[in-house]
Design a protein around this nucleic acid. Sequence first.
DNA 1: ATGGCCAATTTTATTGGA
Length: 254
Amino acid sequence: MKIATWNVNSVRARLPRLLPWLETAQPDVVCLQEIKCLDEQFPREALEEAGYRVATYGQKTYNGVAILAKSRIDDVVRGIPGESADAQRRVIGATIGDTLVFSVYVVNGEAVGSEKFAYKLDWMRRFADYVRTLAFSEKLVICGDFNVTFDDRDVYDPAAWREKVLCSTPERDALKRVMEPGLVDAFRRFNEEPGHYTWWDFRTRGFQRKQGLRIDHFLMSEPALAATSAVEIDLVARDGETPSDHAPVIATLG
DNA sequence: ATGGCCAATTTTATTGGA
């Protein structure tokens, strides 16, 4: 089974890239972030015609997450349980077969010390409290755009980014708290080398200059990790016409 | 040091992204 995560930066704008990519990559499950539309605006019919069932948690203009799957999507959880109805829509989870899958879009944070940065740390703490309640003895896959790098290997210019947003110690500590109950950065089980990125800045032509960050991750419980044979970044999907600024990441289980 | 690109809406500017 292939599970993919992709921050598509608007699902409606990206549909001309998403549909052929599904045809080529043939993922069984796709976790989308930044769909940037209401549930009723989601291109559900086109994706169902492509062979996927759809669960969305959309929001106007900003944020919004979704899960696509070729098989049944059960027990859908939208948002962090307990948060208000008008909360930013950043997480959706569901049971697919024997695996609990979450699509997560962590707050960007703008700049270290800003109001949005404080909100990011608060959101991550609330998410960590929720994650703590999940079953780590089962196959648990929490993937998405975490907007945090783990270490210098994930950063094209570590000196320039030192303690900047996406690379700061408080954010990295917040991510560690999410993982603390028993989740692993699955990508690093297969590749220890620096220079593997999942996001590149449009403005600086970062992709063409190979200047990016690794901020899209697969966090897995040990049972999920044990079933995983590969975690790969799809650079082809980031190239070409009208790409997202993020590449998809694909985990192969079983 | 600065800005650059992209998407959506508030649309011919602004906001947010990272």
